[in-house]
Design a protein around this nucleic acid. Structure first.
Lengths: 67, 67
DNA sequence: ACAAAAAGTAAAATATAGTTGACATAACGT
DNA sequence: ACGTTATGTCAACTATATTTTACTTTTTGT
């Protein structure tokens, strides 16, 4: 799996820290970090929550990035 | 969570059974069944595999359906 | 340079996604 | 009606996503 740079960029665009995004979506900072690092395979529910928090869609953040 | 009727429809459009889709994506029939039933929260990797097998995108099958 | 905040990382524990095997019901063709 | 295939569902198991706690390194501001 490759890094999820789109996520990192979208977060930067909203000027949010990993910790702030984590709180916004009800996850931990480590989980957000791991997702950005591309080290894993989050659930669709968490992906959706992240998308909504950042004003993006699934296709924009989680499609064909780490495949 | 509501039923994922988009998934059911996309599968029908390809004339695939739950078992065939399951095999195509390396999952079990029960897992596909549960996802269609809306009873759970699959991983993004499985969602992507399903989308690819059915020629759809994440937004088409997994966005704002059960939210 | 220094302090503070943010990001990276790791081990152990917990929650839950996904499997396996089995059986029940619904849908379909003949 | 009958046999067959597809779907629905359940319990027990395994794999792994996510948490918790804690520490290190990088970045940022002053």
């Amino acid at each position: 799996m490759a890094k999820n740079l789109k996520l990192k960029a979208a977060r930067a665009e909203k000027d949010m820290t990993q910790a702030q995004l984590a709180e916004a979506v009800g996850a931990t900072r480590q989980t957000i970090n791991a997702i950005e690092k591309g080290e894993y395979n989050p659930t669709i529910r968490l992906c959706r929550a992240i998308c909504k928090a950042l004003g993006k869609t699934l296709d924009e953040l989680f499609w064909e990035d780490e495949g």
